[in-house]
Every structure is written in C-alpha cells, then in structure tokens.
Design a protein around this nucleic acid. Structure first.
Lengths: 219, 219
DNA sequence: ACCTGAACACCGTTCAAGT
DNA sequence: ACCTGAACACCGTTCAAGT
C-alpha cells in the first residue's frame, strides 16, 4: 500500500525494527550491528536517530508502556475490584514478557505502575483506608504483583532446575503428608498461586483494623 | 603466614578472585579478561580450571548459596514463626545483593529456597494446614519473599526515576487525602512494607477456612 | 541534515603449541 | 597436567569524512 518509505530511515522505523528483534529473540539479541543489518543501514545511522543502545532501550520501553491498556476495576466489593485490577495488571505484564525485564532493569517500575496506583488509591478510599495506611496498601499490592510476575517469568525461562523440586521432594520425608510432597514436586500453578496470594493479602489489608487478633485458643 | 601459594592457580583461587570482583563491582564487571588480569594469568588458564564464564558464574552461585546460614523459626505462634522466617530470609538475601540477581538469572530460585521450604512446611503443619493447601501456603510465602527482594533491590539500584512518584503524586489530586499523596511521594519504607505484606499474607492464609466471608453489609 | 566506513577498545571462546 | 599467545567472531561507540 504505502509506496516508498524505503530509503528514509526514521526514528520510528528504527524502533519498529528493534521492537521486532526483541519480541522475537529477546533483549540480548538486540545488538546495534544486528539492528543495522536488519534495517539495511550502517550501524552509525542508528546513533544519529536514536542515540546509543541505552537510549534505544529507553525509547522502546517508553513506547511499549504507552501501549499498555488501561485497567478498569470490576466487581462488587473493593476487595473483588482490587483483586481484579491485580489480575489484569499481571495479564498485561505477561503479555509483554520482555518488557517486564527491561522495565525492571531500567528502574522504571514505578512509572509503569502509576496508572494502576491511581486506581488502587480509589479502591483503598472506597474501602475506608486513608493516609499512610492507604499508601501502604497500594504499595503492598504493587510489590506483590510486580514481584510475582518477576519470579514467575524467571521460572518459565528456566524450566528444569539443577536438582529440582521434583527429586528433592519426591524422595524427601514431608512428615506424614504425601499429598504435600506430591504437590511440591509438581511445578507450581502460578495462576492459582497468584490469585490465592493476592486475595489473601488484599483481604487481610482491607479488613477493619479492630481485630488486633487475640492469640488463638488452640493448643 | 602461608608461604608460596603464589604460582599455583587453583579453581579455588579463581573463584575467590571472581567473588571479590563481583562483590566490589557487580556481576557485569566479572570479565574473563579482567579476572585473568586480577589473577596474573592468561585468560585461557581460567578455562582449564573452571570452564567458561557461564560455568564460572554457576560455581560462584553454588558457593555463595552454601554460605547462606540456616534459618531457625522463632516465636510463639506459627504465624509469628513464619513471618520471622520470611524476615530472616529477606535479610540473608539482602546481605548478598548480587547473589539474588545471579540466582534469579540462572533460574536457581527453587534450589536456593529449598531449606526454607522445609522449615515452612513444618510451620504449615503446625498451623493445621495439610496437602495442597500447605503446599500453596509455602509457595505463596516463597514467591512473596523472593518477589519483594527483587523489586526492592531494583529500586535501590535506580533511586531516581524518570518523572518519579514524587512529582507525579505531589501535584496530583489524590482525592481529599493529602496525607496519602505525601506518603506516596516519599520513597517507600520497604522494611515496613515487607513486614506488613508478609504478615497480612500469612495471617490470611493461616486463618481457618471456615469464614468464606459473607459479603459486606456496607452499602 | 543525514549517512558512511574506518578505527578503538573491549568482549568470550577455541586451538595449536609449549613445558 | 597445566599454562600460553594468537586468532576468530563478535560487541558499543567515536569521529572524520562524505553528500
């Protein structure tokens, strides 16, 4: 359709090619020389348009972050809505697997999380939290989501571990709880685990602070 | 003291020098050539003793992991003991800042966490959890701790963000909650945040499953 | 304003050669 | 068995030079 965008090297075109490279082969594959070859230009042209590799990655992150959809809370209770927001956020991050690592390396986690922060603040207020308690709630959810995605992504990348939980737990005496040994020998169901953990966290943090919890009467 | 360990290049000596390099200047500074220069040998000698860079890092991780102290649970209730274990684990990981990233990159998180898993299993049993529920509990705590440390470490490395929460939250309308805006503009107190989050998680997961929580009667 | 090649200072790794 | 230098195929970046 478009005629001859052939010879004009644009900042846009460079970013497109870079994004494609990262998407296909991961951030390590993004090399100035490889990128130049993909674009059919000299390496040094890239420097004129976007600067060095660091600036290139910055621009790439910026760009991908802008593509992230907005999250809209859904559900009846604040708890449900917050859990929903967390799940949606995780989904988005998992949709751009390389982005997470890139953002993480560049220390842009805060920036990436800002829209979600605004949403979470509203929900915290709706649940009756205010001031520092609300701030702590927001950040606890943020750390939880980002942390979980980081750990999760890492597991997917390195599916087989040296000794591996499998062997270590299958032979191990897990007390008299073979079901537990079996469960720990299996790879984790991260989807379910995320839901469980974030639900537990949110439920506990949104609960009225009245119950400073008396010690359990169980022996 | 020791006489002439001067000329004999050992696998041990290589690992020592490598560890020192990583400790001082981070994993990126660990270069085969730099390491060789530090050791006063040819680059290729390292290959004979420990193999390539990848093998070197593996050995380094293995070694540092073995140095990690054991965690002993302390406290009256299972909840207290689990939180204590989590805190101790975080402390240990923070004590070896480069190790975390290395372990994470190599996908050895499971292996690193195994001793802690055993302890957590005992506490889960003590709290009355069994089977898959106990396994889920253990893994939730594991993901929480590792994830938090990863996020936390990243923040420390990149103290100033592009726009930064500061500006973004100081000018922003946070509803009618200036205290919250102030709190979110300040850097997070990760120590406190960790304690809050892990306590909330553990409390919620160790609570008896009886309360499927009826919906809040609040309008 | 835009693009180029040559050059610099680095990498990890291999390999034939020494002792 | 241990150590070496030369060489290969890569890097990111700079810079003077072209048009």
């Amino acid at each position: 359709m478009a005629s001859g965008t052939r010879s004009a090297l644009t900042r846009e075109a460079v970013l497109d090619a870079a994004a494609a490279l990262v998407k296909r082969h991961g951030p390590d594959a993004l090399t100035m020389r490889r990128l130049a070859k993909a674009l059919g230009t000299a390496v040094t042209s890239i420097y004129w348009h976007v600067g060095g590799r660091e600036a290139l990655l910055d621009a790439l992150v910026e760009r991908t972050m802008a593509e992230l959809g907005e999250i809209r809370p859904r559900g009846g209770t604040p708890e449900e809505r917050v859990v929903g927001v967390a799940c949606e956020l995780r989904r988005q991050l998992r949709g751009h697997p390389h982005l997470v690592a890139l953002v993480h390396e560049r220390g842009l986690t805060e920036r990436m999380f800002l829209p979600a922060q605004r949403v979470l603040v509203r929900e915290a207020h709706a649940a009756g939290l205010r001031g520092t308690r609300a701030a702590e709630f927001v950040r606890a959810v943020q750390f939880q989501v980002v942390g979980h995605v980081l750990v999760e992504r890492n597991r997917e990348r390195a599916p087989v571990q040296h000794p591996g939980e499998q062997e270590l737990w299958s032979e191990e005496a897990a007390g008299d709880d073979p079901a537990l040994a079996r469960a720990l020998a299996l790879p984790a169901d991260t989807e379910r685990l995320f839901l469980t953990a974030v639900s537990a966290l949110v439920r506990s943090l949104l609960a009225p602070p009245s119950s400073t919890r008396p010690p359990d009467p169980v022996g």
